[in-house]
Design a protein around this nucleic acid. Structure first.
Length: 388
DNA sequence: GTTGAGCGTT
């Protein structure tokens, strides 16, 4: 049996027939698909009842039809993990078509991540595949770095490996590692490993800054969701990153959701773009209820989308970003400065490129360029305020 | 020379 697959972005509507594996699970091999469509990560198809795109399930390098049966007459459309190609443009959001820039953050460095300040992403520059330093607990006092390295390199390339020692060089029995690729991190985390005859545990480290955090620190804001998405869809997708405590989708659907994890440390590694059921969604930090604050204490509601004729959607307008808007200035007591803007954009894996009018001149507006996703996330975050 | 929950002089 074959299924019919097309790549909308090619514009030629060429259909390629892809074989379905003969095995009992009736899956389509991702690698077989990728041989025809380079870089493909999933497939989607139109739900005949609702006309909404529906994504096929992807697991272990295989694609599974959600209904268990592939329709030989349907045309399945390729989905790519690089953030948004024009085919993922979604209804109702009113996005303009635009080629997107994937934010380029620092290349992997052999340094510890300063949480919340710097996000290291792997060699593919995928914002949703970030590695963090992992703590390794229970290392034998006799083990050296090479022993730890040997154990974990079986899961992938390490960019960092260190055993903590006291002033005399005596091992303190724990250390830190970081992988180059996110798959490796997923493979080792929260599992027990053996080094020099002792079992060791690998975890996302607690940090002092994350102790006694409010619930919103364990919560992500997921924007640009299709309205037919279910809590189970989100659970299924995000479960691979960490234990989920709660999923909240407003009723009626408002294109966003909150997912709360048990561990706050995983949260910041998720900021950026994800492909869920074939749709490109944006994950950002959840804001505390009743306390909107996008930049420090500055309200996110002061950020609007720039007009489409102004450098298109990658540009945000920071209203009130100058003393020319005394209302906001007085109400919130501060004006966002350059550092705050950069921190704000960084949450979304974006890089602010500054205002063409110069930062916080006396102009009425300042323009800041982030990514398309970032602009969409900020816009959605404003909407969120109206429903909470 | 011993020990065995923890959270990092970068």
């Amino acid at each position: 049996m074959f299924i019919r697959v097309a790549d909308e972005t090619k514009g030629n509507n060429e259909i390629v027939e892809i074989p379905v594996d003969g095995g009992i699970d009736g899956s389509v091999s991702l690698s077989t698909l990728a041989a025809q469509f380079q870089g493909v990560s999933a497939l989607k198809y139109r739900n005949s009842e609702t006309s909404v795109w529906r994504g096929v399930r992807v697991a272990d390098g295989k694609l599974y039809h959600p209904d268990g049966v592939w329709d030989p007459d349907s045309v399945y459309v390729t989905v790519y993990s690089k953030p948004i190609s024009s085919d993922i443009k979604r209804k109702g959001v009113g996005e303009q078509q635009e080629e997107l820039t994937i934010p380029t953050l620092g290349q992997g460095k052999s340094q510890r991540i300063d949480y919340g300040q710097e996000l290291i992403i792997d060699g593919e520059n995928e914002p949703d595949r970030r590695c963090v330093d992992l703590i390794v607990l229970g290392i034998s006092y006799r083990s050296i770095e090479a022993d730890v390295k040997k154990c974990f390199e079986a899961f992938g390339e390490l960019v960092f490996c260190e055993i903590k020692r006291d002033a005399n060089g005596q091992s303190r029995g724990f250390g830190f590692i970081r992988f180059k690729n996110y798959e490796s991190q997923l493979a080792v985390i929260n599992k027990r490993h053996f080094i020099d005859g002792r079992h060791v545990d690998v975890k996302i480290p607690d940090s002092k800054t994350s102790a006694h955090e409010p619930e919103c620190a364990r919560k992500i804001f997921v924007a640009r969701l299709p309205d037919n998405i279910t809590p189970d869809d989100l659970r299924q997708y995000f479960a691979k990153y960490g234990a989920i405590k709660d999923v909240y989708i407003p009723k009626p659907a408002r294109s966003f959701a909150f997912v709360t994890f048990h561990d706050s440390n995983i949260v910041r590694t998720l900021f950026g773009t994800h492909i869920i059921l074939g749709c490109s969604v944006t994950v950002g930090p959840a804001e505390p209820k009743n306390k909107p604050s996008a930049i420090g204490d500055y309200p996110s509601s002061t950020f609007k989308r720039a007009k489409p004729d102004h450098s298109s959607l990658r540009t945000l307008t920071a209203y009130g970003a100058s003393p020319a808007h005394p209302h906001y200035h007085q109400q919130y007591g501060q004006t966002p400065n350059t550092d705050m803007m950069h921190t704000f954009f960084q949450q979304y894996g974006a890089t602010a490129t500054g205002s063409p009018k110069g930062p916080f001149s006396n102009a009425q507006q300042s323009y800041w360029s982030g990514t398309h996703e970032e602009a969409a996330a900020v816009w959605q975050q404003q909407q969120q305020q109206h429903y909470r």
